[in-house]
């Protein structure tokens, strides 16, 4: 394998990881602050993608679509929080899993009702088409590179938001002692809605950005949701830093595994057998990674405080 191919795949892995981070950040915030498992997070990702595709198709502008997906997913998140999620905070995880599983059914089937079963397609905006040259002579799509940049900027923005602003202070306080900050006069219900909407907006953004690379269809959120859960469990639930590192780790291991493992097995066996063994192992690689990490550190790599 050439160096150029390796760098290209590494960048693909990082791009995938950054996208997973956008999903995982919301999940881990919601779990850290409200103690809630939200399976319906993937639905917000799907909503973001559908809104972006629809608005971009109607207006011809990807950027308007992106704004619509951010605003729409945040609004959908806020509504869901007020109508349903709010009632689940003091329930056990079992009820949360079931209720948000029901939300997935509602969102998926609702979207299919409105948009039909056919996938929508979203074009990469003109300004981001084309490719850049990488060291080693490879060409890498500009759009994928910009996703990495957006992801890194958002990770940095989230870091500033949480460590430097008043809202971030309240979020951190909410993570460590829910009752206490309520007693100190912080409007905790609004805080929860804001955190949930923030997570939803990030998921919507991820959906819109990925929508231009893949097709936009019902059920697109579910594989990503499961991976995002793997990410936050590896990183330690409630930790943004853990989510970032976990996301990059999962993205890179998954992408490189698919390329490297079949090549690796060709050293011992015939090509077709190597491909099947390698690809079977590659698709399991991140789950194996997660099992190993949890077996060694049952609370994940960067567990946030003692929950």
């Amino acid at each position: 394998m050439t160096l150029a191919l390796f760098i290209e795949q590494l960048l693909n892995g990082i791009q995938f990881g950054v996208m997973l981070f956008l999903m995982a950040a919301g999940l881990t915030l919601v779990f850290g602050v409200m103690g809630l498992i939200n399976l319906a997070h993937g639905s917000l990702y799907m909503i973001g993608a559908f809104l972006c595709a629809t608005v971009a198709l109607a207006t011809g502008s990807f950027w308007l679509g992106l704004v619509a997906s951010l605003a729409g997913a945040a609004a959908a998140g806020a509504i869901v929080e007020i109508v349903v999620i709010r009632r689940l905070y003091d329930r056990d995880h079992l009820d949360q899993v079931l209720a948000t599983f029901a939300l997935i059914l509602i969102f998926s089937e609702g979207t299919r009702w409105v948009f039909g079963s056919f996938p929508l397609y979203l074009d990469i905006p003109a300004a981001l088409q084309g490719a850049v040259s990488l060291p080693g002579g490879a060409q890498y799509p500009l759009y994928r590179l910009s996703i990495i940049v957006v992801g890194v900027l958002i990770a940095f923005g989230l870091y500033l938001l949480i460590s430097r602003t008043r809202l971030g202070m309240r979020i951190r306080a909410g993570e460590s002692d829910r009752e206490m900050i309520g007693a100190l006069g912080v409007d905790i219900r609004t805080l929860y809605t804001v955190v949930f909407a923030l997570g939803a907006a990030l998921a919507g953004l991820a959906g819109a950005l990925v929508g231009a690379i893949q097709s936009v269809q019902v059920g697109m959120g579910e594989p990503v949701l499961i991976l995002a859960f793997v990410v936050i469990v590896i990183g330690g639930i409630g930790s943004i830093k853990g989510a970032l590192i976990g996301a990059i780790l999962v993205g890179v291991v998954d992408t490189l595994g698919r390329i490297l493992l079949p090549n690796f097995f060709e050293l011992f066996m015939g090509p077709s057998q190597a491909t099947s063994v390698g690809s079977a192992l590659a698709s399991m690689a991140i789950y194996i990674l997660m099992a190993i990490i949890l077996a060694v550190k049952p609370q994940g790599l960067f567990a946030a405080g003692s929950q």
Binding site: I226, A280, S283, M290, Q299, Q307
Partner: peptide, 23 residues
Amino acid sequence: TSGVYFIMITLAFAQMIYYFAIS
């Protein structure tokens, strides 16, 4: 593990077998 970690690790093992069966 316990709590939410248990939920997620059992899910992860099931996914592992799922993807194995697919590929």
